[in-house]
């Protein structure tokens, strides 16, 4: 890596009460890098990425994003949230707002973008996720796959430098997973820095620059997908892969 990394985590530890969720996490993500995090449930994957936009606070260690230190300074937190987009397992669209309003709200409030411009950008990204025709509908009228694509568009409207995906396809019916993954593959093609927590190993193989395998709060293994899938170094990773790849 030549340029300064987009995200640097050094010696990050976090506890939920007595439970040690994240143990000595060191991770550097280059601009434009695409990382897929996998591992058994409860291994700390979601907590790890939620620390990056401070939905969770780390207790020890340092996290620096695009040169901004994540600490108690609320100005820094606001700045980082503008740069880091997040897509959730449960979509979390605002049910009382239309698709277009979902995409416009934060642009207007957090960035102060004029309405016209915000709406134009919203339509641009809704086209990118291939549902501009749903702009006037309320989220409840859309399928899960459509809702998740709207959620992706809503995040992109803030023009973030990093996108975090927290199991974006886990709550979807099987036939809708592909339309969401296709949008994510598209996004990867634009050079977006992405950190994706997922069990979709086909997607990982196709898109990831690096696989990160976590277990019991630690990063056990980080390797290129080719190496990781062909010959995982740790027993725990090979056990995990054997479980999720064979049905």
């Amino acid at each position: 890596m030549t340029a300064a990394p987009m995200i640097t985590m050094t010696g990050v530890n976090k506890w939920f009460g007595r439970f040690h969720v994240l143990k000595d996490i060191d991770l550097a993500v280059a601009a434009g890098e695409r990382i897929v995090i996998c591992g058994p449930s409860g291994s700390g994957k979601s907590t790890l990425i939620r620390c990056i936009n401070r939905l969770e606070e780390h207790d020890e260690g340092r996290i620096v994003i695009d040169g901004i230190e994540l600490d108690e300074d609320t100005r820094n937190i606001a700045a980082i949230r503008r740069e880091v987009g997040m897509v959730f397992q449960q979509f979390n669209l605002f049910p009382h707002l239309t698709v277009l309003e979902n995409c416009v709200l934060a642009q207007r409030r957090a960035r102060g973008t004029p309405r016209k411009e915000a709406e134009a950008r919203a339509m641009h990204y809704l086209e990118r996720v291939r549902i501009p025709e749903q702009a006037g509908k309320y989220p409840a009228r859309l399928s899960g796959g459509q809702q998740q694509r709207v959620a992706i568009a809503r995040s992109l409207c803030m023009e973030p430098k990093v996108m975090l995906f927290d199991e974006p396809t886990s709550a979807l019916d099987p036939e809708m997973i592909k339309e969401v993954l296709d949008v994510m593959i598209d996004l990867a093609g634009t050079g977006m820095t992405m950190i994706v927590v997922t069990h979709e190993m086909g997607f990982a193989r196709q898109v990831a620059d690096r696989m990160v395998f976590m277990d019991q709060g630690r990063i056990v293994e980080a390797a290129s997908p080719a190496d990781f899938f062909a010959a995982p170094k740790s027993d725990r990773a090979s056990l995990f892969l054997s479980r999720i790849l064979t049905h």
Binding site: L55, G85, F88, N92, P95, R109, R111, R154
Partner: peptide, 27 residues
């Protein structure tokens, strides 16, 4: 109001006041 609504608002950079007024209270 579901926790995810708060998280979505925060992840988009909405402040506390905006989150209450535009996301939480309407629901």
């Amino acid at each position: 109001v579901r926790k995810g609504q708060w998280e979505a608002a925060r992840s988009l950079g909405l402040g506390r006041l905006d989150t209450y007024r535009d996301v939480v209270l309407p629901q």
